[in-house]
């Protein structure tokens, strides 16, 4: 790797001052699992590395009546194992459990993963389906955005120079809400998804009261399958309705050809896995 200076701030304020001072010449390092590889490949050549491991106040998992708040430096493995998350947002625990290997989950953080903005990772599609909000800080203040506004393109986020993610806020799920995360993984257990589907739904008898569908690895950003959602909402569940909703995702995905499959194949698999998720959640045992 190239040469750089490492900084070890202890507080958020100290971190934001460093970020403000060095601007584009600095990169934050959280878990390091993405940044280290980008630097080894000379895709990023920061002069300054700001290590977040010792920064206080970014490690919490808390819940209130309305939401769950997760500090940006909480590790994937901690989310997977958290009783609070397992009880209140089970799809989030099961999604994080599917990321890479235990070693990577021991290192990678929720904030670092989102800033990396890789649409093929597991958490983005689930956080999109959960309507998560992202809290962002800079030396001049704070703002909170919808997760949909964070992702811009492959590996591109909407953070301005001097800004960093401090917290992820997830609206509480109703107790009668059902959910599933399906990851199509034809190669090895630790691979990226070929296609992933995050589904959250609330039923009223046989009627779909609310449904949110996040899709991963099929576009430059994680996406919501909005046409399928509108097709389902307010309607009685039937095989035909599920097929019609699943077919509609083909219009919304824009996958790449790669060694996990051709774009056409992934488009077909997006339909298949959306259908499986809908069958499991809408027609499975309650």
């Amino acid at each position: 790797m190239h040469d750089f200076t490492v900084h070890h701030p202890q507080s958020l304020q100290e971190t934001l001052i460093l970020l403000d001072r060095f601007g584009d010449a600095a990169q934050l390092i959280a878990g390091g699992t993405a940044l280290m590889n980008f630097m080894k490949q000379s895709l990023l050549l920061p002069e300054h590395i700001i290590n977040l491991q010792r920064v206080q106040g970014l490690q919490h998992i808390q819940s209130t009546k309305d939401e769950v708040r997760i500090g940006a430096m909480v590790k994937h493995r901690e989310i997977e194992k958290s009783n609070l998350i397992q009880n209140e947002v089970p799809i989030l625990a099961s999604t994080y459990r599917r990321v890479a290997t235990i070693r990577i989950r021991n290192m990678a953080t929720i904030g670092g993963g989102l800033a990396h903005a890789d649409p093929a990772q597991d958490p983005p599609s689930t956080l999109v389906a959960l309507n998560a909000r992202i809290r962002i800080a800079s030396i001049s203040g704070e703002r909170t955005i919808s997760i949909m506004d964070l992702f811009q393109n492959y590996y591109e986020n909407s953070l301005m120079p001097g800004e960093m993610i401090t917290e992820v806020i997830i609206p509480s799920m109703h107790s009668d809400t059902k959910s599933t995360y399906l990851k199509f993984l034809p190669r090895t257990a630790d691979d990226y998804a070929t296609v992933s589907v995050s589904l959250i739904a609330t039923l009223n008898e046989n009627i779909v009261r609310d449904v949110r569908i996040g899709l991963g690895a099929v576009a430059p950003t994680p996406i919501r399958a909005t046409i399928a959602e509108e097709t389902l909402k307010g309607h009685a569940i039937s095989d035909e309705l599920i097929q019609q909703a699943s077919n509609s995702v083909a219009q919304q995905v824009d996958p790449l050809d790669d060694f996990r499959g051709s774009a056409d194949y992934k488009r077909d698999m997006a339909i298949v896995f959306t259908k499986r998720a809908l069958q499991q959640v809408l027609q499975g045992p309650s």
Binding site: H8, G32, N51, N106, M107
Partner: peptide, 29 residues
């Protein structure tokens, strides 16, 4: 692999397994 895939460099750091190829030596403080 030197990119976090293979696990040959695994060590235990503060009670958790990590890929030592993805940790900076400076982070061992």
């Amino acid at each position: 692999c030197n990119d976090g895939n293979c696990g040959a460099c695994t060590v235990i750091m503060d009670g958790r397994t990590v890929n030592s190829c993805l940790v900076l030596g400076a982070e061992a403080q």
